[in-house]
């Protein structure tokens, strides 16, 4: 079934948007990452972009080509929106969610 691929794609889309988000100074500071060196921050943006591409790749296991592209736009938009809402309301979840999402996708894949 395509459920694990869908979950994976969503988790990757979220992680990718999180990467783009952490690449911005405002959010890098906000998420308490000041302990890490700025070198890590510079890595965030390309890494995020890469994860977004991977999200599209995962979506292509759920839908055939053109549809996957449509879905990819929707997935990253909604993932971005989820991130946007988590940032002020539940900042602790922001970094934990992709891990949980990945774990869930793994569980889905197993069962």
């Amino acid at each position: 079934m395509s459920a694990p691929a869908l979950m994976t794609s969503l988790a990757l889309a979220y992680a990718g948007m999180l990467g783009l988000c952490l690449g911005m100074d405002r959010h890098w500071k906000q998420l308490g990452s000041a302990r890490l060196s700025p070198r890590w921050q510079r890595l965030c943006r390309p890494l995020g972009a890469l994860l977004l591409v991977l999200a599209g790749y995962a979506a292509s296991f759920v839908w055939p080509g053109g549809m996957a592209l449509v879905a990819w736009f929707g997935l990253i938009s909604l993932a971005g929106l989820a991130l946007l809402l988590l940032l002020p309301y539940a900042p602790r979840l922001v970094l934990g969610l992709p891990l949980a999402g990945g774990l869930l996708a793994g569980l889905f894949a197993l069962f």
Binding site: L6, V62, W63, M67, V70, A71, G74, S77, L78, L81
Partner: peptide, 17 residues
């Protein structure tokens, strides 16, 4: 009409936004 229920839900959520 394409892409089954996952796509339908994506459209629904995007429409709500």
């Amino acid at each position: 009409q394409f892409g089954g229920y996952p796509m339908r839900w994506l459209y629904f959520l995007c429409g709500l936004v």
